[in-house]
Computed example of a mutant assay.
Amino acid sequence: MEFFPIEFCQQETDKWINPHQKGYEKPLLEKQIQQSYLKNLHERFFGTASPWDQDYVKQILQTDIWASEKKQLTIFSNQDGLAQSKWYGLNFRPYPHKKIQDIADTIPLDELKILSFHKENRAITIKNLTGRSLPTTDI
């Protein structure tokens, strides 16, 4: 069942906007705003807010990632006593404490205490990745 038959719609944006329409040549954003967005883009991908910048990465590594991961494992194990925030597996049942403990046992948590920036370890991915608080093989 299709909710919206997209094959009947033009996929080229220039077909949606009439070039003879009044205001067609008017930019959607003022020049100053365009420049601001462009500056932010450059900072995010190449500048001090990029994952390539040593100071930016060091700032992230200074957060207590170890404590954060330990807290996540406690939350997912449903041992934090908060009934309103139960976590469930793919079988629609709450995660059993043992399953979460088995996962925790496979995580080298102590390595998270001594994180540091090494320029030679920078990398990019060319595939989609799943970032998870709870590292499972569940899809």
Rank of each mutant, 00 (worst) to 15 (best):
79 Q>M: 13
84 Q>S: 14
83 A>L: 09
87 W>Y: 06
55 D>L: 08
51 P>Q: 05
97 H>C: 07
122 R>L: 05
59 Q>G: 13
89 G>M: 01
127 K>L: 15
40 N>P: 00
99 K>W: 08
38 L>A: 05
105 D>T: 10
64 D>G: 03
75 I>H: 11
19 P>Y: 02
113 K>P: 00
24 Y>C: 03
112 L>W: 01
136 T>Y: 04
128 N>R: 10
46 F>S: 10
15 K>N: 14
3 F>Q: 12
133 S>H: 09
32 Q>K: 05
29 L>C: 00
34 Q>W: 00
106 T>I: 15
133 S>M: 13
83 A>P: 12
43 E>K: 03
72 Q>T: 10
106 T>F: 12
93 R>V: 10
60 I>A: 07
34 Q>R: 04
117 F>M: 08
114 I>G: 05
103 I>P: 08
2 E>F: 14
48 T>C: 04
114 I>W: 07
20 H>Y: 06
15 K>L: 10
11 Q>V: 15
138 D>M: 03
114 I>Q: 07
95 Y>Q: 02
76 F>E: 00
129 L>W: 06
114 I>S: 09
118 H>P: 11
28 L>C: 03
11 Q>C: 15
82 L>T: 15
99 K>A: 10
20 H>V: 02
36 S>E: 06
29 L>M: 05
42 H>I: 10
13 T>F: 03
49 A>Y: 02
57 V>A: 01
134 L>E: 03
49 A>Q: 07
116 S>R: 08
137 T>W: 09
102 D>G: 09
7 E>K: 14
133 S>Q: 07
76 F>L: 00
23 G>V: 01
32 Q>V: 12
31 K>Y: 13
6 I>P: 13
12 E>A: 06
78 N>M: 01
105 D>W: 12
111 E>N: 10
84 Q>E: 15
84 Q>C: 13
100 I>W: 01
15 K>Q: 15
17 I>S: 05
94 P>E: 04
